[in-house]
Design a protein around this nucleic acid. Sequence first.
DNA 1: GTGAAAGCGCTAACAA
DNA 2: TTGTTAGCGCTTTCAC
Lengths: 345, 345
Amino acid sequence: MLMKKEVITPEVTIYDIASHLGLASSTVSRALQNNPIINKNTRKKIAAAAEELGYRRNNYAVNLRTQRTRTIGIIVHELKSHFITSVLAGIGQVAAQSGYDIIIGYSAESVVKEAANARNFFHKRVDGVIASLAMDTADLSHFQPFQDKNIPLVFFDRAEDQPNSTMVVIDNTRCGYEATHHLAQRGCRRIALVTGNRKRNVYEQRYQGYLQALSDNDIPFREELVMINDLDEKGGMQAAETILNMKDRPDGIFITNDFAAAVCMRQLQDAGIRIPEDIAVVGFNDDNICKLVNPQLTTIHYPGKEMGEIAARNLIDHLDGVTSISNASRIIVRSQLVIRESSLH
Amino acid sequence: MLMKKEVITPEVTIYDIASHLGLASSTVSRALQNNPIINKNTRKKIAAAAEELGYRRNNYAVNLRTQRTRTIGIIVHELKSHFITSVLAGIGQVAAQSGYDIIIGYSAESVVKEAANARNFFHKRVDGVIASLAMDTADLSHFQPFQDKNIPLVFFDRAEDQPNSTMVVIDNTRCGYEATHHLAQRGCRRIALVTGNRKRNVYEQRYQGYLQALSDNDIPFREELVMINDLDEKGGMQAAETILNMKDRPDGIFITNDFAAAVCMRQLQDAGIRIPEDIAVVGFNDDNICKLVNPQLTTIHYPGKEMGEIAARNLIDHLDGVTSISNASRIIVRSQLVIRESSLH
DNA sequence: GTGAAAGCGCTAACAA
DNA sequence: TTGTTAGCGCTTTCAC
């Protein structure tokens, strides 16, 4: 005996609609896709019958037949920042508009999980992938299967040049420069940099911007003022601790992540340091938290929603055949320094 | 001519494996499912061939054939809180362990979006649903299609009694009581309550707990000290404003959401009010933000991860036929008051 | 322990 | 404008 789950409402197929109306299943199929080749009246009748009978289309059958899933996979290195949720909102909106589903994978800054997500998406047969790389991703070979099957890849924020893929990024060098330059202009002469691993190019670029700004402001570079960590809660703590233990403390800090900056700031304040009077602080991302901490945090803002929209639009245009195949490109989005209390002394 | 996307690596099916090995496709299918009826050696050979040929199983075909998707849909009213991400982590872990996929829908506190997500999940043919209701959800009819098809439903946190569904919740009355009682014990005599719409039962219950604690501590209830809003940024602001405009300000506030509490606190501080000296504050949820604000926020903690695990385990056991069909039940999870600086004066 | 064959629900080429 | 039909890749009954 075939074990079947007790079904209360029976499943309605296009065949049921067809026989109900005395039509062929293909006519129903076409009508349900709003194919103009079918008589408008027939289309209406079919739509009504579908509604009436409680038809729900079986996407598994559709996907099996069409060999497409209308699904795009998104891999993000974190989930809780305002930036990432904005990007996801942007992608989601464009995708929904174009009739694509999205599935979200979370790497938690680990290549291993990133690769697992990529594998998962590959097996789910996504039509395209949008990704921001994890902190420690150096080898991109887990994206190879997509390349091999001509599945388009778009990177945003944390991106690396890849053959046949697009990237949507900000000018991190300029951001690093502006943040540092701002601190210098406010009178800081010992500017610390707390940032991520320089193997991740965004951090390398912010570092280069930092160096350039120091140089342009005639501030000598001091190795001991550069701290590299994961920019998480622990990273913020560590940075604060290191700074507290310095004989010559910095008078300005550029931390390339708002959350880490908030943690660090809090820690410094608990040790009696006044911000911005003793040490000015600049973060990165313009997360919601910036306006909640005391003093409010100066930071670099960049438009997450817009980046998401651009990434999705690019990918989907490609999938729908609107743009040509090999338009591997780099799209640079504007960013800006948002000055708040934490750097105004 | 059939339009086919240019395929670089051809797709491998069980037929390719079968003919490669001189076997029947059914044998391959069984072997790939690790069916013990197939000779162990044959199974090994088939696994090797699958690997070698780069086989990836087509879940769309599987789902079409088996009429199950091994997918569970999750609807959450928000995404960015620590509580929700913990729940999702808990569900995700149990689901992965049991070979289920999850898809996440976000209602942003709106019934309309909640219903849209439900519809979407229904059309995606999820095997089960886990949900926390939006702020303004009163009518649950958008879950009816699941009931009609015997698709199991589990609610967590924001739940309503429904026939044939399970709920995983905390004792909100007790939480409301404890928070209020704590403030009273610290000497507060005018305790404000900022909470969500009482049509959502969790808020009604916290309100009842508040009332009970007032009564037990011989504090008269004052209507003007109860503020109802959406507990978002705007809600926090509004509450602060209302309080600042009072002639007789409260000396304690219980805001049933940490983020709103943080916003409110900040606003009050900006107006020169000292916390906890002038006004003590208790939040709700034990979000990360509690430790970042100054002073650190007293709150109600409850175990998100565990609630997620319980919800998922329950649902999946049901789907896999481990538990009987109609065990509609209510599971109550422990919660506790976490005392920090914001209420210690 | 393995094979043959039907069919899940749909789309699209081809025919009418 | 509509109908006929093959087949997407898999599982599972039934037969051997």
